[in-house]
Simulated assay, not measured.
Amino acid sequence: MMNNTAMSNAWHHSRRGRGHRHKEQDRPNRERAVEQKAEDSVPRGACMTMCPAFELRQREAQNRLHRFEMLAGTERDRLPCADVSRAVKEYSRPAAGKDSTRASDLRPPSVLLKTVCYLVDDIAASSTFQPWTEVYSFVSDRLRSVRQDMIIQRVSGPDCVAVLEKSVRFLLYASYRLCGQPLQYYDPRINDTHLQESLSWLLESYRDGKHRHQEEFQALSLLYNLGSTHALQHVLELPERIRSSPAVQLALAVSRAHSERNPVRLLRLSQRLDFIQVCAVHRHLLPCRRDLLLLYSHGHSSRNCRYPLQRLARLLSLKDPLAAELCRVCGVSVSGEWVSFSKSSFTEAPSGDLQCRRTHEPVDDEQWNCPAGSVIHGCA
């Protein structure tokens, strides 16, 4: 028989146990309530056009419309009219006292994706809008605005991935096409910042599940960031099904050749890259070609040794005239169809002596003339 004290302790222990179990059972409900409250506080876009009506009226009145957004026939007016079907919300820096979360100023994910497709198909891929430096300036600003709307609304899922994939392809294509342009028209550092941010966000979004183009963009990230231990480690930690895909395996082989300072193998592997992959890796190719000439200048340094220019051009993955020009810039003697190497005459040429844009142009001219739209949509 239990005495009164023991019975009392047992009763209180039972009550505490029941209370603890109730708290444990209530915890998921409380967490769901907190998550629901946080989700309810996230702004939801209600603007169903590419540019909010308020901004459109404001820019129209202030004569701040881009010529790509003007209504045909009003371009020469004192205050040109906006074409609602062509005007796109511009990027604006967050400012104190400015509410950037109004539903009427935010575009929902479906409209954001539609906007990106318009920018690619009707602006970037258009043959009528020239020069392309102006096309780039307009599209890159509007894509930045799209990403800003996505951040405010915490957009995720397929629409987010589709927007980021097209943004990354556009920025990669632009880095290739506009390489060597004056800084007032194209700043590679700014483009690199936007590209790295978009790539990082995209790769993080891939963690949510399977995505159709994941292997392509994992490979592009590694090719663009050759020499980055972080980029290489990220790829090596991917699931086997992604890591063993042809695109990622080729990117890993290129990365290995780069880390081993094997320019001949790297340039040979680069011949197997598709166009958008060439866009990703091109900034590493000129230093790689200089490394090759440096190695040959030491390995074949001799007054009596001549090397066929045509064969060297194939190793450099360049047309003969460009190979000869690169040799001269680097202090390698060229005489007709032959080159002579000398380790004492080799010079580390300043980057401005031979534009990267010229040396990374593919041997196949049709590839360079590939339509921008098909490249950015991933159809090339």
Rank of each mutant, 00 (worst) to 15 (best):
C47V: 08
M48N: 12
M48Y: 03
M48P: 04
M48D: 08
T49L: 10
T49P: 13
T49C: 08
P52M: 10
P52N: 08
P52V: 02
A53K: 08
A53E: 14
A53V: 11
F54S: 04
L56I: 10
L56E: 01
R57T: 11
R59K: 12
E60H: 04
E60I: 08
E60A: 14
E60R: 12
A61L: 05
Q62K: 13
Q62H: 07
N63H: 02
N63F: 00
R64H: 07
L65K: 00
L65C: 08
R67M: 04
E69T: 07
E69G: 01
M70N: 02
L71V: 11
L71H: 05
G73I: 01
E75Q: 14
D77E: 14
L79E: 10
C81P: 07
C81D: 11
C81L: 07
C81G: 13
A82H: 02
S85F: 05
R86Q: 13
A87E: 02
V88K: 04
V88G: 11
K89V: 04
K89M: 04
E90T: 15
E90G: 07
Y91A: 13
S92K: 14
P94L: 08
P94W: 00
A95R: 15
A95C: 15
A95Y: 06
G97H: 02
G97K: 04
